[in-house]
Structure formats: C-alpha cells, structure tokens
Nucleic acid binder design. Structure first.
Lengths: 210, 210, 210, 210
DNA sequence: TATGAATGAGAGTTCATTCAT
DNA sequence: CATGAATGAACTCTCATTCAT
C-alpha cells in the first residue's frame, strides 16, 4: 500500500509538473506563435530550468503537438453523431447540443483555440495532416447528418460536401471571433442560437416563398 | 525624351524583376510556410543572387507583406457594397456577384489563398493587425448589407454581427477547400450557387412553415 | 568485534558495489568510447540510480581513470625486469614469459585493452600523462634489457631507444589485432612465438650471412 | 579568358580559404582532441565567423573527416607495392623507401599524425571503419610482400599475418615517438635504418647460429 | 545593378553534476 | 545508503542580413 501510494503520488507529481509546463507553453504559443515562441520563453514563464523542460518533452515540437492533441481529443469527444434511433432526442436539438459543447470548450480555453485556428494551420506537413484528419472526420459527420436529413425530408437537397464545409466554416469563424474579440461578447446561448438558426434557415426572410 | 524613356524603361524593368521575385516567393511561402521558407529558398527558385533580393525588398518580412498586400488589395476591389440606388441590379444578384468575384480570384491563385488563410493568420501582431483591419471591413460591409436587408424586409431580423461572421466563415472555408482539395472540384458556378443558397436559406427543407 | 566485522562487511559490500559499476562502465566505455558514453548509459546498464553513481565515483572522468589505473597496474605487475642473477631462468625465456603474461591479460579482457589502446590515447593531457609515464617505464625496461643483452653479446648493437619503441609497437599492434579480430585467431602460444621470433630474428631468412 | 580566369581565381580563393580553415582545425584537433575541441576553438584560431565555418564544411565532423581523409590519402600514395619485375630496384631497397616516404610525411606533419594515431582511433564506428579499411589494405600489402619474400627465399617462413601486424606496429609506434618526443630526435635516416634492420634481423646478435 | 562571401545573434538540445527526499 | 528530479553551462548548427567587389 505505501509502496503503491508512493508510486501513485510520484506519478501524479510528474503528471502535475507536465501539465504545469503545458499550461505555460499554451500561453506562450498562443501569444507568440510556434516559431516566435522559443523554448526560453516557455521555461522562463514556467519558472523552470532548461533541462527540466526536456525531462518532460522531447522537443519544442513535442510540446506543441501535445497541445494540439489535447484540443483535437477534447473536440472529438464533444462532437457526437446524431442519434436517430427511436426515443432519441430531437435531431435538431442534438445538433444544437453539439454546437454548444464545441463552442463552450473553445470559449473556455481561448489559447487552445488560437493554437488550433491560427498556429496549427500553416505550421508544416505534420500538423497539416493532423488537422486534415480531424476536419475530414468532422466534415464526414456533418455530411452524413445532412444526408440523413435529406432522406427524412428535414433537409433540402443540396451538395452535402459543400454545405458541410459552409457549416464547418461558420463554426470556425464564430469560434475565432468569440476568442479574439474581448468585448461585446453576447451570451454564449445567443451565439449558439444564431449560429443554429443561420445554418438552418439562412438569412432570407421568407425563404419558402422564393 | 530618351532620358525619360530610359528611366521609364528602367522603372519597368525594375518592376518586372520585382514581380518575378514576388512570383517565386509566393510559391515558396505557400508551400513551406513563412518560417520554414528561407531567403535561400526564394533566391534559388528565382535564380538570383542573395544581394539582389535585398535590392528589391528590405527583408524577408517585407516580401511576405507585399504578397499579403497583394491579396488583400485585390480582394478589396472585388468586394463591392450592395448598390441599392434605383435602377441598380437586384441586391441578391449583387451579393452572388461578390461571392463569384472573390472565389474566382482565390481559386485562380491558390498559392496566395494559402498564404492568406494559413500563413498570415498566426504569424505575428503585425500581420494579425492587417488581417483584422481587412476582415473588420468585410464584416462591416456584410453587416450593413444585412441591416439594409432587414429594413427592406428581405432579411429576417438577427444578430447581424454574428451572422456576418457566419457568412465570412463559409466563404473562408469553402475557399480553403477549393484550393486544398485537388480533386472532385465541382464547377465554380455550382459552388457559388450552393454557397449563396446556404447563406440565404440554410439547410432546412421548408423553413417558412417552421 | 561485531562492530569491526560490520565495518568490514560493510566495506566489502561497498567495494563489491564499486566493482560492479566499474564492470558495466568498462563495457560501455569500450563499446562507445569515453565521450559517446554517457553517465546515463553506465547507470542504466548497471541498474543503479544517478545519485548512486556519484556515491562511488566523483565524476565520469574518475571512473574512467579507475579503469585505466586498473589496466596499467595489472600490466605493471605482469611486466618483470629480466633477472640476470646466477641461477635465474634463461633471459630469452624470461622475455617470452613477459610477452605471454601481457598478452594473456589483454586477450582475456578485451574491453580494457580497447580502453587502453583506443580511448585513453587521445583523451586529454591527463590521460596522456598517465600513459606517457607507463610507456616510458616500459620502454626504459626494454631499453635496459637490450643494453644488458648487448653487453652480454646476446643482442646486436643498436639504437636501443628506437628498437625499444619497435618492440613496444609490435606488442601494441598485436594486442589490438587480437582483441579486435573476432575470427581467425591463432592460439595465443603461436602468436607469442611469432612475436618473440620476429623481435629476435626479424623476417630475414639467413640474417647471419648478410 | 577573363571569364574563365575569374572563375578560376574564384575557385582558387575558395580552395585557399578552405585550406586555411583546415590548417587551423588540424592544430586544434591535434592539441585538444576531437571532442574537447569545439567549433568555437577552430573559428577563433582561424579568425573567422561562425557562419563562415559552415560555408566550407557541413559540420564539425565533416572537417575532421576531411583531415583524416587527407592523411590516409597521402599515406596511400606513399606506400607502394614492391615491384618484383626484372630491372626493378632491389626489393629491400624498395621496402626501405616505403618506410622512408611514410615516416618523412608523418614527421613533417606531426599534427596530422597525432590525429591519425590518437584521435581517429576511438572516435566512433565511422572513423573506425575508415581506419580499418586503410590498415587492412596496408596489412595485406605487407603480407603479400612477405609471401613473395618467402617464395624467393628472402624471408623466413612465418605466420605472415601476425608478422605483418608486428611490422605495422613498429611503424606506428616509431612514428608516434617521432612526433611526440620533442627532443633527442635522431636524424630520420638513422631511424629508418634502425627500423629497417629491426624488421629484417630482429635484435639477436647472430641469429644464424642459434 | 548584381553578386555571394562573410557575419554573428540566437536557436534547440544534451548531459555531467547536485541535493532534497 | 539510495534515489531521480532538477539544474544550467556549453554545445552544434541556422539563417536573415550586410557590404566590398
């Protein structure tokens, strides 16, 4: 028991230290960008020695990837396929819940959002591939939902791939605005509502008559 | 006269040389990203000497900014406020024309698009400010159009700022997909049509009845 | 008594531990060389903690010196001056015995031999001085033997210093070959015989007639 | 012509610069050893900037290898197979000439000799392989000469491989002594003579009678 | 105007050593 | 006595920029 306890405490401490460094690296990367952020910046802000950094991460790139992994993993958990089985909640409500879970997380961690939206995009092939994989999965999910919707008569026939891109784009841009703009932020529910309505009905006043 | 002519020819030559370097830099930046692209990469692909580069540009950053300026300037020209004066074309047609002009350019110059969407985003404060200014102008334009539309009864009442972000987001994402995906590209007109319809009517089948 | 016994046992344990670490360090140094071998390599292969290492040795250099000391001390013991007192064995037999004792040890501990011949040579002033001292002693011993031999009419007159170097060189090179070549090793006695004959008579077929 | 001249001068200048750096690196490596010599040491002694170094050599290792290449190449040129064709000089004279050419070069460039004998030996697998190849070639050459000599009745029957090692060893050790000892250096001819005689006749006074 | 050798600040990374537990 | 997390000096290498030709 004490032995195990010791090891556990030990592991927890290591984990805690690692998270502490990750926390400061997140700030630094989000503020200065990957390339303009130096390992020196990170260790200074974390208050650790150079060597300590390399005790927990194999390289500057490694710690960046850890952060990127973190966002993507969290987002993957928050984006759930629409459940169409009998007794499942209203599909539209499920869509709205997805939007809510995603935006909630991104707004709650603006640095990670910046890293996802601004830094990871143009870094190199490696991160491009990570993002590609992630966004492709998301797009496929949206596309399939649209196809289901069309079959059910809920969604109007359309080029699902293009429309899926549109929907992804609205999410990205709104998330970006929410994390960049420091003022005039409407309550998150309002944003979600607007986002949802825009995707559902567009901007036209009486689209049915057109 | 010959003097003047000489100078003019001279200036034209300088301009041509400059554009030549810009052309190759565009390829290099779009492919490798700002930081991973070295001045060596640019001068090698342009076939000029190191010193020559600094005869036309003051720094690596300078040439990148020139490229960024180029996209933004071109896009600014292609995005025109909706003309509501009597005798002007149908507002919706004007909107669609705007979308068309923008996408046309971006698809026609995928390298510049990549630079705009991927590289410029997380570079530093400087380029962040340039983009901010540009996108703010675009967002304001969209917002004002929405407000007009609401007043005219064409557009349903909504949070115009958020909806403007949504619209901007769809444009960005679709442009990105168009320039990244090398295959399965539908004809540009189809994309424009889908984009336009999505913004106008959303995805809902019979939104009027809801 | 138990106290003393305790201390003795204690000291023996310490000594055993020390030797254990020395043993693994020997493998590591001989395989990777002094500089490419890290303290991490040593403690990992020895299965001890970082701090433990510094309980038994003051530095990486210290443990290397200990190993070097070990070889030199052993070799010094195995190289014995030729005993010319009446009743002593045949001088040539004594020479051959010397060769035998040295080669026997070096072949038996190839790692130490590698450290002696390859690592210690170009390390720094410190080890250079250790080797210098050792080899000088050996050379002097050989030289004095040659002088004796000349006086006794056994050895032809020659520049004893240079010839001593030659003899030392043959020993070094043969030892190196013996510990480097993993195959085709002739029996040690054969090697000793050849080495001895070469030093004694050279390669010439009938040197007496020349 | 002027064009070609320009290019030639240019190339010559580059070559000169390279050699200049090589010259200083040689001193530094021979004095401090590969690992204790830093690139800073080299550029300081050469009086050039950090970047300049990497203009002429790709890495610290690269410049060391260049030096090692230099010795080995030169030595290969100076070691010539014994010519047994009719009318060729006396084989023994040829052997002595080989010894002379090799020692001459090594004595003339003691730094390179130190690098060859002390630094390159225990550096790593890479340089070990280079040396192995070189020494194997030399050993084979000696061995073949011995075999010829045996067939011609000039050389007494023996284990040629072992004896070849002995001969190589005498050369190495004598070269080492010559370049290490700063005083008491006998004239090179004397050394060559002694070395030659030792290899030929050994140390025994009248080996024929034994 | 064009060149490209030279520059040097600054980056990421390693590793022998220390010391609180 | 044993541990291993923490340290930081020192290393090699890169690359935007300059300037004499």
């Amino acid at each position: 028991m004490p032995r195990i306890g010791g090891v556990v405490v030990h592991k927890e401490l290591k984990e805690a230290r690692r998270n502490q460094i990750l926390f400061f690296a997140k700030q630094v990367f989000s503020q200065k960008g990957y390339h303009n952020a130096s390992v020196s910046d990170i260790i200074e802000s974390a208050g650790i020695a150079r060597g300590t950094f390399y005790l927990y991460f194999t390289s500057k790139r490694d710690i960046f990837d850890s952060l990127l992994d973190e966002v993507l993993k969290e987002l993957r958990q928050r984006i759930r396929p629409i459940d169409l089985s009998p007794g499942a909640p209203d599909p539209l409500a499920q869509v709205k819940a997805n939007i809510g879970r995603v935006l909630e997380f991104l707004v709650h961690d603006p640095e990670l959002t910046k890293i996802l939206l601004h830094q990871a995009a143009g870094l190199d092939e490696r991160s491009a591939a990570m993002l590609q994989t992630f966004y492709d999965r998301v797009l496929s999910l949206i596309e399939r939902s649209l196809e289901h919707g069309i079959r059910m008569g809920l969604v109007r026939p359309c080029r699902t791939r293009i429309v899926a891109s549109c929907i992804l784009g609205t999410m990205k841009e709104v998330a970006d605005q929410l994390t960049t703009q420091r003022e005039d932020l409407p309550p998150l529910e309002v944003v979600i509502e607007e986002l949802f309505n825009f995707g559902l009905r567009g901007v036209f006043a009486r689209s049915a008559t057109s």
